[in-house]
Design a protein around this nucleic acid. Structure first.
Lengths: 346, 346
DNA sequence: ATGAAAGCGCTAACAA
DNA sequence: TTGTTAGCGCTTTCAT
């Protein structure tokens, strides 16, 4: 283990002082240096295979060139593209990312944020905030650049980047309506998450806008944004209104669970019941019945959030909008059809 | 941004020297200290909300409590569980992970490894090594703890943890054979990767063991371990031997591509042609025809590799076996059936 | 244009 | 049992 060369080694090699070496190697140096010295230093650095010790540099400058990324669970297929999007902008700028998974466990985020803070991250992209989230709010207040992605915390001044939930829900609601559905249920996500809450609000609004009484529609909240949550909530929906002809789900995995539960009780999708999702997660279009859903930008959202963070990191925080909303796109596939005319289920 | 308290602050507060404070706060301290001081220091630390500055500590101890994880692409569904497995053992021990994606691009790994080294990672888990991989070999030789996962580099002394590729291929080959298949083709992965090479070797061995002439079987190498690679290689296989009745693929995504290409040329799976995969990636069992495949341990493999790394990190490198092979399991689903008896395709 | 010196916050060898 | 001292490798102010 022949240890790495340091500035001191280069100084000895070239006969100049380490501070001069430091200056010569600084890419954006402001101090004037003789061309001769610069060349000799660069040369020696090259020869010795010099790599700056970022730890030492960080201690001095309080910049680690590392950011933290908080996600619920990398195992959820929509997050890998988001992470890649983030890295696609951070890495070329010299930033590395430390990713932590909260598993949507309240309280766990506290410990994870500490892990990030302890390592001196320069900023945080948080995709797992709760509607109430004192931990990250405190961090942001302390002056660390923070962006929330996919979800938001209102009234804190933390810039957020989300998808156009309202438009997405409206599009899918309209599609169901136009197919003739009137008894449209909503399988909501956990309401402590802004996605769950926002999509429920959007559902009610869409129903009202279409002239339906949103109070009369079946609504069930899933405990988790996953298949099991979808199954359980679907059972509640069918109990609330056995005549439901369509279930608008707050995300794809809930929809997959809904379809599964429906099949288990003898309801085929889309023949007996229509189901829609949200997100358009990877591989979804290979799973039958190919789910009609709302595509959110994943890679792009990550990249955009990272772009905002970079601005904050470079002191141009003033240029960062408090709210960024990314457009969504309706993906019509096979899980929606007209309600059965024969009233077989009534 | 009221800055974090330092040892110095606690020292001032308690009237003892900073080195004493440092000792009092060291969880595994060996030096004897008076109970009184310890209590006062702990107390003050608590009161001031002291959190150790890991950067400073790292500079001194040359330990960052951070490891690097190199993967091909987090977007490939088998990696998220592996990453979670790694974290399940590293995080409780105080380690954070920096994950980098090589995108299987030769050369890119060099830059990524440098990113990790620059940040002073204490060790590396590498899941994307090539059969020839001078970069990581050099790093390991320099003394940094390195483990390779899923793939191996022979003859370098770098401990590796892989799946029982040979057993997996043999199981799936036997299954096809027992269903009556004799014209079994192999859709190989890129041969510069040990998984690609190992599975090809295992395929030939299995064929020979079953009494088939492995030289007579169609074999095509995919350029990438993905659907597109699978489609292209399948075209080659069908050109090599139009009478192929089964394609044993080196992984699931190649198999998905194979099925897709077969469908495009009018061959239904499994009725006209049987196809098998490898890995049993997440969500695979929801995609029709449900693929018969070999399940590798994903989360567990990550956890096991991390366990080995932890040993190396704590100086018990001697206890780490050079080779660890995890058992695999045959998952029989719907993509294999007997070859058509009516010879419709011959 | 370059050198000297201080110091980021911590740890560890040595001294008392 | 505790204090002193030095220093990890770098950046940066000040002096020359």
């Amino acid at each position: 283990m022949n240890k790495r060369a340091t500035l001191k080694d280069i100084a000895r090699e070239t006969g100049v002082h380490v501070s001069t070496v430091s200056r010569a190697l600084d890419p954006k140096r402001d101090t004037p240096l003789s061309e001769d010295v610069v060349v000799r230093v660069r040369d020696a650095a090259e020869r010795l295979g010099y790599r700056p010790n970022r730890i030492a540099s960080s201690l001095r400058t309080r910049k680690t060139m590392t950011i933290g990324v908080v996600i619920p669970d990398i195992t959820n297929p929509i997050f890998p593209p988001i992470v890649r999007g983030i890295e696609s902008v951070m890495e070329p700028r010299g930033y590395a990312s430390i990713i932590v998974n909260t598993d949507s466990q309240r309280g766990r985020d506290k410990r994870l944020i500490e892990i990030l803070l302890d390592r001196g991250v320069d900023g945080i992209i948080h995709t797992a905030v709760l509607l109430e989230d004192p931990t990250i709010v405190k961090v942001a207040r302390s002056g660390l650049p923070v962006i929330t992605l996919n979800r938001k915390i209102e009234g804190t001044g933390i810039p957020y980047l989300i998808n156009d939930e309202e438009d997405g829900i409206r599009k899918v609601f309209s599609l169901l309506y136009n197919h003739g559905h009137r008894r449209i249920a909503h399988l909501a996500g956990p309401l402590e998450l802004s996605t769950g809450q926002l999509r429920l609000d959007a559902f009610r609004k869409a129903a009202t806008d279409m002239g339906l009484d949103s109070g009369a529609l079946a609504i069930a909240e899933a405990e988790q944004f996953d298949e099991q949550g979808g199954r359980e909530a679907t059972a509640k929906i069918l109990a609330q209104d056995p005549h439901t002809t369509a279930i608008l789900c707050a995300n794809d995995r809930l929809a997959l669970g809904a379809i599964d539960h429906c099949a288990a009780v003898g309801l085929a999708c889309p023949d007996d019941i229509s189901v829609t999702g949200f997100n358009d997660m990877p591989f979804l279009d290979m799973i039958p019945p190919r789910l009609t859903t709302v595509r959110i930008q994943q890679f792009e959202a990550g990249a955009a959030a990272a772009g905002l963070l970079v601005k904050m990191l470079s002191g141009q925080g003033g240029d960062v909008p408090g709210e960024t909303i990314l457009p969504v796109q309706l993906m019509e596939r096979d899980s929606v059809s007209a309600p059965r005319a024969d009233g077989i289920r009534s």
